[in-house]
Design a protein around this nucleic acid. Sequence first.
DNA 1: CAGGCCGTGCTTTTT
DNA 2: GCACGGCCTG
Length: 769
Amino acid sequence: MPHTSLSDQLTASQRRAVEHRDGPLLILAGPGSGKTRVITQRIAQMVRRGVDPRSILAITFTNKAAGEMADRVEALLPGAKVWVSTFHKFCARLLRQHARGVGLDTNYSIFDTVDQRQLIKLTMRELDIDPVTYQPAKIAAQISSAKNRMQSSEMFVQHYEERIGNHDQAVVARVYPAYQRALLASNAVDFDDLLLHTVALLVENPELRSELDARFRYVLVDEYQDTNLAQYQIVTAISQEHRNLCATGDPDQSIYGWRGARIGNILRFENDFPEAEVVRLEENFRSTQHILASADSLIAHNVERKAKSLITDNPQGAPVELLNFYDERQEADVIASEINRMVAEGDESYNDFAIFYRVNALSRKIERALSEHRVPYQVAAGLAFYERAEIKDLLAYLRLVHNPKDVASFARVVNTPTRGIGKKTQSRLNRWASTEGLSLMVAAAQAERCPQLGARAVKALKAFTAMIEQFSLADAGSISDLLRMIIDQTQLTRGWADSDTEQDQQRLANVNELVTDASQYDTAVGSESSLEGFLETTSLVNEGDSLDGETGRVTLMTLHAAKGLEFPVVYVVGVEENLIPHERSLRSDDWREKEEERRLLFVGMTRAMRRLFLTQTLRRDFRGRSLATIPSEFLMETEFVLNNYADGLGGEWDSTANRPTHDEMDQSVPDHDVPPIAANMQHARSTKQSAKLSLTTAADLLNGTSDQADIPVGFAEGMTVRHPKYGLGTVTTLSGFSKNRAVTVQFHDRDRIETFIAAKCPLQPVGMG
DNA sequence: CAGGCCGTGCTTTTT
DNA sequence: GCACGGCCTG
């Protein structure tokens, strides 16, 4: 494609981003603004202007994003050697070359979360810390979060000793250093370490840093709003002399703060690089005007952001609809039958639909309704291929062959399948190996020297090590053959083939798939074939990426998983207080957490191209109990028309099954009344009519257009109130409508924060301030 | 050493 | 409400 016509297809700001070559560049790209296209064209443009492709490094977070970008660059510049990689893969490569610099051997293992947990558990046992009282997963999370703050074990311990920490921190202060030592002894790193070791490498070796700075003269980072401290330091470290750092992202789509991502990194880009050019991509090519206006109105309520407008030439489209249901059963049934109706009318096909929810737990009831209504669907969740037990087992054999010090892999397979090396034997071997200073494999090979072990255990251990030692890539010839050899000798799949349980058949199929993967790898890399390379792809690649767009199925996923995708018709279910915003963010004293929740809903809404439905119910099952819900405070910040199904007049919903009669509803839910917001909008009940309706914000409704005579409105933010039990407090938030109007109070005594239903609580207003 | 029973404790999850 | 992990029994 000649580049004149190419530029013609770009908007003015897109062109500015594409044409920009030297110096820092910040691309603030709103949802659906053609960001990936801009980045890839920019790379192509740079190369056409004489930049050496090998001096360009493009970094993404996911393999999927990296793959897409690589494909698009390849299409524009066939054969160009631009390095497109994920952060973790980039660091893994760098560390292979400089492993010694951080105390590792080049054949180090990469521990995933499961390995990590296992090693932490092992470490805790050695420290005599009860893994029941202190859950390894939680300890692991705290260690990971410390690492995200770039707090080494030494720093954590020091920090802990300087001020009195709590019980958990005392445990972490003991486990963290021991865990790091165990990792080193295993010649292994966890995901966080890949980044941290790289930072250490760059800090401790100024000459390496400047070598990389010079080698990667042009650095592009996608989704910059999701970078954590370590990633930020890596990127900035290699952009000091050659300050051609191009950061792209959208602060409004930062939804991984809880994993250490720092929205501040993108917000302060212009401080870090004062000479930066800033390009805003504000034109949206995805959604209708109604959808964008509604999403924009929501996100405008965030304080921590860069103001950015969302504009589109797309048609106005249908208004965003808020569907109000009696309960989640009805919610799921109506969604399922509505999808069927729209498909039957020929407007849409199943793969045009997506259903998003805040927590995975919500998917179950939707899935059930979809199958009952014969709606084909796929769930974007479940265990990733490489996380399945049988795959991990097989890979652990491979890892142990490659890195015999790998404790997690040893522990995983030493008795899988069972070969008489039980827990007792293992812990005796552990203890002995650590006093003797031997790795587990070496200790097991000379188990007869261990006085605590019985003859049978010794025999089993020696047989195990002898078996592992005869596995070698050189002898097997290829990785797939090595895998076949392992499967054959270990009898890992014994019994599965004859078993008629679905699970065993699935396991067998998975194992076969791994062998197929391996042979594909073998042929793809030819003589370069190495255990290292194969293991690296399997530990850093997630198969969950391969969610298909053309399956003819409705897609279900969490709001987090939805980022970066688009669907013609989107349902966001459970837009209720405590779900989104999630209760945890409401309990937090950090207001930023609620803003992240708002961004999460924003991300969900902006996935929609033509139709967007938000849903809420009056009651929802929560941990086995059915509770009255409170509408999400975010609803008041969006624009929608209400389509009420909970009043028995409901729209198109005529499913006879399981629908509560009015009598049932009266009995079971004393406060099931249609809120005024709904009553006010009863004419909005048919989906087909909605396009004719005028837009109303929930806030408008709340401000008196509706009949609310019986509602106590006497609360305001900032007001001081008295509670008979909790004493004085200050009203921090008001949310919900009508009878669901809720008041959140921060009590002055201690840290108590409580939310009440305004109509029913014993709160006495005492005055303002 | 497997299979069942009970108690616990619950977001999100790019790598 | 359900899933996972630990513990106990056959």
